[in-house]
Design a protein around this nucleic acid. Structure first.
Lengths: 216, 216
DNA sequence: TGTTAAGCGGAGGGTGCCTCCGTATCTTCG
DNA sequence: CGAAGATACGGAGGCACCCTCCGCTTAACA
């Protein structure tokens, strides 16, 4: 409370170093083995004791948050850029697409963000808020332009998005999710204006059924 | 194959009884504590040894499958009934709504079905196939009537559906999911035909934002 | 009632979570 | 530079859960 002195010691060098090591290791381990991966494995890989890991990141979510902070940032920035796009609805769609891309690259990211979105605890509020704001601005613009229904919140949208991504481990999930997102964005439009089914083809839309056919 | 004798002993009474007990206990435990609940807790509650539980249900998924078999059946039957509905698109929407209802009641059911849908292993193929067929028939009818785009597979739809449900633990999730489903079904239409935004109001659509507001 | 296979149950080995605290190391200050 | 004290380290240990394995029990059948 009475921090009158404010004489904050310089943080210890080893502490800083270890934090970084853990982060590095966690990124590797999560991206490879998914978000269920053992934290002890992370610690071992980082060459630190399990206690050290827990001191820096008291919960698994804290670690997620830290690991994927950069990615979230990027995604949010991309939303910023898209604010200048012509068609606000299309901007939203493109943002969602890039979200799929991210998820595809970072295996652990979905679950990490899913957790953030799901549990709603303030611990990992950062990602959630950042993304909410990002998608919110896109939504607002589209709504303001009268192109999109107004009764959908950014939270709704994010949850739906991650929900869809969450369901997919199997091969071919990407095209499936992209298709679903197309449908979804279509549903968001307020003015069907000739309901361009053309769009469906812009992205090498598979013959649907075939794209999903179970492999065996 | 060469079941020439066919002299199958009557199954032991205690085995049958125990299986039932485990099922009963599992239903309680899963519905209350979610699908992560300890199997040992289930066994204890059922008054059987852990070994007995595992003999009857070698994997957690097997247990899920057995526990929620009835629910899946009901849901599928409801789809049958809806085949007689006037508007095939509306039929689909109503089916999805009832799905939400199910999920709301059975806390463990989402994750159970999600698993079934997700992992795609043949162990719990039952639920997945049953539901796929159910939703498939609804889809087909709508497509045949020219009311719905044809490039969406039942699997896609199911995964999207469960994905949306999966994301929701927090209060107010139901209205959110219902809203998202509305959007989704709208997106599925092929003919906007006056794009009834009336529907949005049929179910006391909250002011969106408010419905999602975090509680603290 | 005896034989026998089906079924039972829980001990035990393994993994992972998280805490706690004695020890080591870094920063600061004289 | 050296001492003092703050800060961080690491891993042992307690707990919970997973799942297997096998000696014992018990129901079905003759």
């Amino acid at each position: 409370m009475d921090d009158h002195t404010d004489q904050t010691r310089k943080p210890r060098a080893d502490a800083v170093r270890n934090r970084e090591r853990v982060l590095e290791a966690a990124k590797l381990v999560f991206n490879a083995g998914g978000p269920e991966a053992s934290l002890e494995a992370v610690a071992k890989r980082a060459g630190v004791g399990i206690g050290t890991l827990y001191r820096h990141f008291p919960t698994r979510e804290d670690l997620f948050e830290a690991v994927y902070r950069r990615e979230v940032e990027q995604l949010s920035e991309f939303a910023e850029q898209l604010k200048n796009a012509k068609d606000p609805v299309d901007a939203l769609r493109r943002w969602l697409w890039s979200g799929v891309e991210f998820v595809a690259t970072k295996k652990g990211m979905v679950a990490a963000l899913a957790l953030a979105v799901q549990s709603g605890s303030e611990l990992h509020a950062f990602s959630f808020e950042r993304l909410t704001k990002a998608v919110g601005s896109l939504l607002d613009r589209a709504v303001a332009a009268g192109a999109m229904r107004a009764d959908i919140s950014p939270e709704d949208l994010l949850r739906a998005f991650f929900g869809m991504c969450y369901m997919h481990d199997q091969p071919g999930w990407q095209s499936s999710v992209l298709r679903m997102l197309d449908v979804f964005v279509d549903g968001l439009r307020v003015q069907p204006v000739a309901k361009a089914k053309t769009r469906t083809n812009t992205r090498t839309a598979k013959p649907a059924k075939a794209a999903v056919k179970r492999k065996r």
